[in-house]
């Protein structure tokens, strides 16, 4: 990966700061795992190294830990990692890392089971979003599999024209005291999501839309 635009890094730092601010309240509203993720994890061969990129409060990390010998949770927000730690205190082999989805601090070919869920939509531009999927491809083991998801234009809350184009927006998070904190999102149109995945270094097994999100089941291309 080449030089990254400093403004781009600043925007990602802003997203991190937002989650640092809302972590505790956000975490309380993120209790249950998604069925699409449970289904994916049911299909992977057990064992090996698991990775949850953008693990947030760790709601899916316990499931990854159940399926793998060791589960890594990576998030940009320190406060969310703290939520994950307290939530997962009685779960076995879980390791937390602070890091950036577009620059994973993991050696190539190490990850057997990957989740990259509801995170890519926080990256501010298309080149960075594609680079982050390339990063996922790089760290996946030759037989490794991963599930990628992003918020999509098909979600009920967006009154988007069905023109195959996604859009950038900010979505406010309202704290219990009524303050709102804006979060950057890129809302994917399903064809655009499919195109970004196809243009990346992962091998796409299938893509589908469910509950207002785009999903892709992917493999390493190696």
């Amino acid at each position: 990966m080449g030089e990254t635009d400093p403004d781009d890094h600043r925007m990602r730092a802003c997203v991190r700061e937002v989650y640092d601010e809302i972590a505790s309240h956000f975490s309380k509203t993120r209790a249950n795992p998604w069925p699409e993720i449970e289904a994916f994890l049911d299909d992977v061969s057990p064992g090996g190294l698991g990775l949850d990129v953008g693990c947030g409060n760790g709601r899916h990390l316990a499931l990854v830990a159940d399926r793998t010998d060791r589960a890594l949770g990576l998030d940009a927000s320190r406060a969310l990692l703290a939520e994950a730690r307290s939530r997962l205190s009685d779960v076995g082999e879980v390791t937390l890392l602070q890091g950036d989805a577009a620059g994973l601090p993991l050696a190539a070919g190490t990850v057997d089971v990957g989740l990259y869920v509801a995170t890519i939509h926080h990256l501010p531009d298309r080149a960075t979003r594609r680079a982050s999927v390339d990063e996922l491809a790089r760290v996946l083991a030759p037989d490794g599999r991963a599930l990628v998801s992003a918020w999509s234009t098909t979600h009920d809350r967006f009154d988007a024209p069905d023109d195959g184009e996604g859009f950038d927006t900010t979505v406010d998070w309202t704290l219990p005291d009524g303050r709102t904190v804006p979060r950057f999102y890129h809302i994917y149109a399903p064809p655009e999501f499919d195109a970004d995945l196809a243009a990346s270094d992962v091998a796409v097994e299938e893509t589908f839309v469910s509950s207002g999100n785009c999903f892709a089941r992917v493999r390493s291309d190696g």
């Binding site: 990254t4 400093p6 890094h9 600043r10 990602r12 730092a13 991190r16 940009a76 320190r78 990692l81 730690r85 937390l96 890392l97 602070q98 890091g99 950036d100 620059g103 601090p105």
Partner: peptide, 22 residues
Amino acid sequence: AYPIEDGIPNLLPPDMREDAPA
């Protein structure tokens, strides 16, 4: 250098860290 604090390594790129100049 990437700091390890409170048992969690901070492997964010340096300009995304908390102490990075805004």
